[in-house]
Design a protein around this nucleic acid. Structure first.
Ligand SMILES: [Mg+2]
Ligand SMILES: [Mg+2]
Lengths: 496, 496
DNA sequence: CTTCTGTTTATAAACACCACA
DNA sequence: GTTGTGGTGTTTATAAACAGA
């Protein structure tokens, strides 16, 4: 029934194209009119740059595998000249053959439309936030919360497909989803409960009440979740900004049984690769977040990338791909091979057997011979062929090596994207990018970093957040930093 | 049967004097001849300074409650003049009325005699350490491992009283005991297993094999335990030096059923207080480890001390005293009242009831109403009157606020006491001690720090380790730093 | 007094990784 | 060389006790 206790298993590599079910174009109801500029695809070397349908600060870049990095930069430069000054600062790269621009936009419309749900219709608990002395800015568009479509009371049973299947996300992941869904990135415990119950009815309907204990346990135990007390009595849970990957539920791809996310166009489900990465929100000076591209990479380069990965992620154990009914996010296999040796040989999976009873209740067996309690020494009753049931999503907090400050005090009015700019200028980004290497082998190109940082988020989620403070929407005084000025510099560094 | 999962419950406040059983003076077999100097008690104001029976670097200072700090310093100065140059640098303070000097020495003989057990007689696994390319110094006397009395094969059944009662120590504590028992403060996993099995036969005899899983789990999860790989294949587990409290099993007081530790003189079991604290081994510059004395302390001072405690200890939740069959370490109640409001009103404890079945097997109940699974909403089947079953020992790692370095590389030949001196000079100690305060209320005296740092180790274990590098036994070139020169400075600072 | 929130430990489990047979 | 295999290490889940508001 319940899946195994260990579940970093989030986004898994898929083997075949999805079994696409039909009810697709039914929910194209999202905000195509709100922030969507027109699709302006500048076809250079087959590259197409498409506005994100709902997020004006984001661009979707469709890159064929044959296209070089130079072409991408050119295309972005052209696109930059078309747009206004506070242009997009987030880039979602799709590598591989994709359908039309509308299909690309529909792709992100579907996933960014976050489960139409009344955000404040549950119990009225959420009103505590805007009223309790919090003077946050009301409109902040750099954040993730794109929904609020004022659907009052849809059928909450349609939120998840089977209505009560346990989501494939760990508690740590779900808490991050919940907190990152708020503008100010802070939630009370009760709000977290409600968010999870609303988005995953499993916990409201079938889970034992102990799941709330588990939530509290995770909040306390994980260093990335910190409690901040307002002057009043209520305390909010936040995510350490320097460890926040900005993960949100809408970044996750929902498998076919999800009626909302299943509207992927068929053409994209075969060979495309979606690479979306959330950069850490706080200051990141040592490790760079770069565009992932598949470049050939020899073994020692792999080793360098592996070590670099270990510096960035707190995770000590590598993640590996695969599974079928877990949520899947498509990506190009050539990206994987640089870090994990292409273990895509998944067996046909004789599914069932004791499928529904693999969860072993504790205290039952008292296996007297193995120190790991479940390593049943009788091999005939082991769970059949769990190989292949692997994943690649890394929800672990970001490791920030020096850990300079013990975490800032409670700052209510801060939107992390604004108060904690990644860099003061594009030149700072590039300087730190090449500065990092010069101690050891200083001759590997920038594209290696791309691949590396792909590994950092386990090849699944790379949203490049350049997000200079000078380019923020309301800091237009500094916005004369030309975006196209940034592109040639990057080009220069790469060609070196 | 098994006690509750949550067990920071280590050293508990006791209510009445112990039921002292008789087999006491039988094991005075320890190394009185080895490093024991003669008892030289300099009675000033009733203070007696006694050499530690087995540890030449340590002094036992018996301080009546009426004695002032000045008297202690005078007594230590006198004692210093008697000894040689590399004099003792560890001080164990006994406050309260104690017996004769021999009784005092017998006290520490009994407890420091660490469970006579052949250290290499189990399976031969321990030989990996001295042979595997480790070039550690063979003789290091600043460490804890005092046993090795070459008792080949005593009855291992006599190690613990009931032969298979679960020890009251958490896994984290036991791992610290194990690792700190080694000279070089590093152990392989197998060595840790063996040490625990040898010292607590419960795990060899009655525990389910899952306890080894728990050990590994603790090693991995706790940041204070770090794995260091030699160039070879074996990997050692160590304790982050800056978080190591130096806890050892022989610092713990064993209750009466323990035949070894039960040899406390009767006179000391009534009103004495043992205060032993291990200073962190690594560099500690912000927070001072000071002598605990009971000084009157008003409420705002308490608040300062409480906040300071929170800076030092990683523990977020206060510890509270009490229990009866748990190991007990005596301490003066006036020390407690400064931090924890003297909650010594323990009920008479109607002991049994479902005493032997309080451990609830998971998955049994499915309590559908409380998010903490065991909060059985039926109050009639709750465990009876657990109030009073409290403790005060803090095994949590020491919090080092800035966390400057990511932990040094694997240094095999280092003995932490030598390589990581606490201070370069006594003056540095005092400077940092008074330097710490000057930001806020700079007028509270040094004795407040004493009380505070008592709180840090939960009023139970304070071993003052002054341990200047210049006073180390083989660095005699710098040893002309007079010890008596240090004492007046401290005196000056205190009287200020 | 209870309930909710928060902290800490214990235990089971899955699985990754690796030395070694 | 490959290939299991068992020991070691990491991570998550769950139950539980208990502190504190
Ligand atoms: Mg936390
Ligand atoms: Mg660890």
């Amino acid at each position: 029934m319940m899946s195994s206790p260990r579940r970093p298993i989030i986004l898994t590599r898929r083997k075949r194209p999805f079994q696409r079910n039909e009810a697709d174009e039914t929910q194209n109801k999202s905000s195509t009119a709100s922030g969507a500029r027109s699709v302006s695809a500048s076809a250079q070397d087959g590259i197409r740059v498409v506005d994100h349908p709902t997020r004006p600060e984001a661009l979707v870049v469709v890159v064929p595998e044959t296209a070089g990095l130079q072409s991408v930069l050119d295309a972005l430069t052209v696109k930059r000249k078309e747009g206004g000054t506070p242009g997009p600062n987030k880039f979602i790269f799709l590598s591989g053959r994709c359908g039309s621009d509308d299909e690309v936009k529909a792709l992100f419309q579907a996933t960014s439309e976050n489960k139409n749900r009344p955000e404040a219709g549950v119990a009225g608990n959420d009103q505590t936030l805007p009223n309790s002395g919090c003077t946050c800015k009301e409109k902040f568009d750099g954040c993730v919360q794109l929904q609020e479509p004022q659907h009052t009371e849809e059928n909450p049973s349609a939120v998840k497909g089977p209505l009560s299947e346990r989501p494939p996300y760990s508690y740590m992941a779900m808490i991050q989803f919940a907190i990152n869904s708020k503008k100010n990135k802070m939630m009370t415990l009760k709000e977290i409960y409600n968010w999870i119950e609303d988005h995953f009815p499993y916990f409201r309907n079938v889970a034992k009440p102990g799941w709330k204990n588990a939530i509290r346990h995770n909040l306390s135990l994980n260093d990335m979740f910190i409690r901040e007390r307002a002057d009043g009595k209520i305390s909010y849970w936040t995510i350490k900004p320097e460890e926040n990957r900005g993960l949100t539920l809408d970044q996750m791809y929902k498998p076919a049984f999800d009626p909302v996310a299943s509207s992927f166009p068929q053409a994209m489900q075969s060979e495309s690769s979606v690479v979306v990465m959330s950069a850490p929100v706080a200051e990141v000076e040592e490790e760079r977040v770069c565009i992932p591209f598949s470049e050939p990479c020899n073994s020692e380069q792999k080793e360098i990338l592996r070590k670099r990965y270990e510096r960035i992620s707190r995770r000590k154990q590598r993640l590996v791909p695969l599974s079928n009914e877990e949520p899947v996010l498509l990506f190009d296999s050539s990206l994987v091979s640089t870090f994990q040796e292409m273990e895509c040989d998944l067996e046909p999976r004789q599914d069932l057997q004791l499928q529904s009873e693999t969860f072993k209740t504790p205290d039952k067996g008292s296996h007297p011979f193995s120190s790991t309690p479940s390593n049943s020494p009788e091999p005939w009753k082991s769970t059949p062929l769990d190989k292949g049931n692997r994943s690649v999503m890394d929800f672990s907090p970001i490791r920030t090596p020096p850990q300079r400050h013990e975490h800032s005090e409670l700052s209510f009015c801060s939107t992390p994207f604004r108060d904690l700019p990644l860099f003061g200028s594009p030149r700072e980004l590039l300087a730190s990018c090449s500065h990092e290497q010069q101690t050891e082998s200083s001759n590997h190109s920038l594209t290696e970093d791309f691949v590396l940082d792909t590994m950092n988020d386990s090849l699944s989620n790379i949203l490049m957040d350049i997000s200079f403070s000078g380019l923020e929407d309301d800091d237009l005084d500094m916005a004369n930093l030309s975006w196209s000025q940034f592109i040639p510099e990057l080009k220069l560094d790469v060609s070196l």
